[in-house]
Amino acid sequence: MITFGDYIQPKSVDEAYESLISKKSARLIGGGCFLRMGNRRIGLAIDLSQAGLDYIKDAGEEIEIGAMTSLRSFETSELLKEHFGYMIGDSVKHIIGVQLRNIATIGATVYSKYGFSDPITALLALDADICLYQGGRMALGDFLKEVGHRRDVLEKIIIKKSNKRGSFQTLRNSQVDYAILSVAVVDDEKGIRISIGARPGRAALAIKAMEYINSKGLCEEIASKAGEIAAEELHYGSNNRGSGAYRKELSKILVKRALLEVSK
């Protein structure tokens, strides 16, 4: 059970940030879904629901997704679908159910850097940036590499528009279970990006596989080889859902499938 000492609903990010640094025991409340699984007391709960962070905006060259956007809005956004196809929707539709996705937020998901997160895997392949109130704009990939959590307010996620074609591949046993592995591949003007999540560690890019595939043309044989490279270059660990050895095997398959799908 989570209990609050004080509770505020700041009306702006400025206000939220000021409160966050005002007290050591202050915590931001995003959707509140995963938070509730914990068992502790939060001295000052800062509810971001009124801070104006629930939006998906067309900002010219980019699309901005406010941190308090629900996973369901993220999933069903016509704007996102128009630019990035089905991979956005595919990367959230296995998360429990519509009712949870109406509450859980994309900002809290990204901020928490959950290893099992499907949308992080997709956003990483999409070369998304994040915008922190204090820390400013940075690549999602760099943010994910940071150890620990910044004391900052994640304002929005930014995806550059381009002629992206993407594929999101995942394997889970029960369809609303956590992924055993997830793979996202995006192909655009800058080349192909491959991101692999739920290893079970945080999503990471398969850089060598990307270099390989970007130096060759895309065909079934090359896709298979890229899968093998991705399987070798990243670490695959074991947890309750699967062993590292199995994940490694899966990564070959899912990378190949994602590559072949974007090549269509």
């Binding site: 509770y7 609903q9 409340i29 959707g31 509140g32 879904c33 509730r36 509810d47 629901s49 369901r72 519509v98 009712q99 949870l100 109406n102 509450i103 859980a104």
Partner: peptide, 19 residues
């Protein structure tokens, strides 16, 4: 525990009442 909040289905076990 699903209820509708402004016609949208949400899990009332995960949705803060204050919201």
């Amino acid at each position: 525990c699903t209820v509708l909040v402004d016609d949208s289905p949400v899990l009332s076990c995960s949705y803060y009442a204050v919201r």
